[in-house]
Each structure stands twice: as structure tokens, then as C-alpha cells.
Simulated assay, not measured.
Amino acid sequence: MTDTRRTEQVHPDFPDLDCLPPSELVRVLAADQQQALDAVQQAAPALSAAVEAALPCLEAGGRLIYAGAGTSGRLGVLDATELTPTFSWPPERAVPLIAGGEKAIRQAVEGAEDDFGAGKRDVLGAGIGPRDVLIGVAASGSTPYVLGALEAGQQAGAVTIAIANNPDAPLLGAARFAVLLDTGPEIISGSTRLKAGTAQKIALNTFSSALMVRLGKVYGNLMVDVRATNHKLQGRAVRLVRHATGAEEPEAKAALEAASGSVKTAIVMLKLGLSAAEAEARLRAADGHARAALGE
């Protein structure tokens, strides 16, 4: 029986891929990734609609829950994990679920992706509810684990989003919002860790970053909720405060120290001449949005 999924088809252009010299091999592998960006740009309206629907859920205290298997599951784990250091998003509000559990992050767990019931159980076990946002990701668009996860999300009344790389995939019909990333056949046939995975990474980055911007985690284009947990990030925090306020380095450092390292608080302090407590109060009244707290 012929597999009609585009991600499973043999790429027609490179039958002698294994004969190419390294310079040409690298060139064609890199060039093929352009289709990942093209696919995400085509999906921009669908991603925008998903952001609009997800935003009020997160404003009401809901969570982002990711479900995937293999490469797609690992990309969900990555996106969820990076929200905390980048935007100080509470880790308990970004829940990655991967077929086969944590072991599958580093090694394949045979058969885990084929378990529809496990996907459903994992989502129910996460306590999903109507304020949550569930993102199911699968290149094939037919992974049973992810289909089970989305069914549980739908039944719980959550906002459900499906991301898949094949037109007419079952996954796209199993969620409230369908995001098709039509990347076509892989240059190494069937290896969806290539441009299908790249497109998923771009789409997840775009989706979660857009949400964080709209939630006030960014002022202008500055990541003002960065968590300065090492020397590099501490230096970045000082530079962000200086850029936003025009303050000299000693003044920026003093404001950050008074603000317990909060870039956003330090900016409000310096721009409005407030104490740390006063700046924090203004930010709370503005739901954490620096521009609103500054009256801009």
C-alpha cells in the first residue's frame, strides 16, 4: 500500500546524495531548510488565530501543555523549558508531555508513539482544564499518542492546537486550531528531524514568543522578564536597563540590586524616579506590562 504522506515520500531531486562531496552535501542540506521557513510563513494566519485564542486562557492563569513523540516531542520539551529563563514564565505553567516519558528525551522508546491511550492518560494526568492550551505536534499528523492527547484536551474544553507537516492529516482535524507546515519530502527520505522538525521549531518559537510579548514579558523588543541566573545574563540585564533608560552602568546596577534583579522593575524605577516597591506596585496594577506602568 502506497503511503501518500508527503513527509514519507522519496525526494525526487537527490538520488545520488550519498555521492556528493562534503561541500556540496552541506550546501544542499542547508538549502533544503528554506522550505521550513516558507511553510511557517504560509501558516502565519493559522498561528495568529491560535495566539488570539490562547492569550485569554493564559491571562486567566492557564497553562501551555505540549504533546508529541520523538523529534516533535523533544521540540515541545525544548520550547516549554526555555520559557522560564527567557521570560520568567512559571515552569509549572509550561508542561511538556512526550511519548515514553522523560526517558524518551534522550533515547527512542519503541512503540510509545503508537499508544493512543497513553496520550490521553498523560493529558488527563496533567489535570488539563478549560483554561489550558494544548499543542499537539507530529510531523506525520497521524501519531496515535498525539491524537489521544488532543482527544483528551478537546473533551476537557481546552484550547487545542495541532501542528503537522502533511495536508489532510488526521491531527489537523482533531484540534480546534490546525497549523499545517507543508514541508514536503525530506532530502534524506523520511527523516523528519530535518526540515519538518525545523518548521516545527520555528512555529513553536513563533507561537510561544508571540504569547509572551502580548502577556507583557517584553518592553519594546527588550526581554525585560529575563531571569539573570548567571554572569552572562546579569550583564545582559544591566545592558537592557541602560538601553531602556539611558542610565549609566552604576545607576543601572544599583536599580537592579534594589529590584532583586528584575529588569522590568528597574526600568520603571529609573524612568519614573520611583522606589522598587512603588515600581512593583505600578507593574502589578498594569498586569505586568511595563509600557502601561510607564503610561506610554
Rank of each mutant, 00 (worst) to 15 (best):
A80D: 03
L25Q: 06
A53F: 04
K217E: 01
T7P: 12
M269A: 12
R63K: 14
G70C: 04
E151W: 00
T71D: 07
A43S: 06
I187S: 14
L294F: 07
K271R: 15
L78I: 07
E278I: 06
V137G: 00
G184M: 13
L222N: 09
G216R: 07
C57N: 15
T198D: 09
A259R: 14
R291I: 12
A53N: 03
L240G: 09
A237G: 10
K120R: 15
A279Q: 10
T229Y: 01
F177S: 01
I161Q: 00
L283S: 05
P144R: 05
V241R: 03
A255L: 13
G68I: 04
A158L: 07
L29F: 14
R227E: 01
R74P: 13
M223N: 09
P130A: 10
E24C: 07
V213W: 04
A60R: 13
D32Q: 13
G184A: 12
G184I: 12
M212T: 02
R176S: 05
G141E: 00
G136L: 00
V218M: 09
H289T: 05
L181D: 10
A244Y: 10
I98K: 05
A99H: 10
A199T: 07
L270G: 11
A69E: 05
L134D: 01
T7Q: 08
A254D: 13
Q155M: 02
R93S: 06
E24G: 08
Q200H: 12
L97Y: 05
R236L: 14
K120E: 13
V109Y: 09
R6Y: 05
I98M: 08
A203Y: 09
A277I: 04
L58G: 07
P45S: 00
P144A: 06
V77A: 07
G197F: 13
F207P: 04
R74K: 12
K253P: 09
V179L: 04
A203K: 10
A244I: 04
F177T: 01
F87G: 04
E257D: 15
H231G: 09
H231W: 13
Q155N: 01
V95Y: 01
Q42V: 06
R282Q: 11
G157T: 04
A50M: 02
I135V: 14
F116E: 05
L211W: 02
G127D: 07
G101L: 05
T71L: 08
Q107K: 15
L20H: 10
L294H: 13
D225T: 03
V137Y: 00
E186F: 10
G119A: 01
V123A: 02
I128P: 10
L181S: 08
A199D: 03
A196M: 11
P21Y: 09
I98Y: 07
A50W: 01
H243V: 15
K271M: 14
G235N: 14
L20E: 08
E257V: 14
P15S: 11
R236N: 07
L134I: 04
A266D: 11
T2D: 15
A60F: 04
L172H: 02
A228T: 02
T71V: 08
L134Q: 03
V263F: 10
A30F: 14
L134M: 02
A50D: 01
L181F: 07
A277Q: 15
A279W: 10
R131T: 14
A138T: 04
A46H: 00
G136N: 02
A175G: 01
D115F: 01
R214T: 08
N165P: 08
G157K: 09
A112D: 09
S262T: 02
R282G: 07
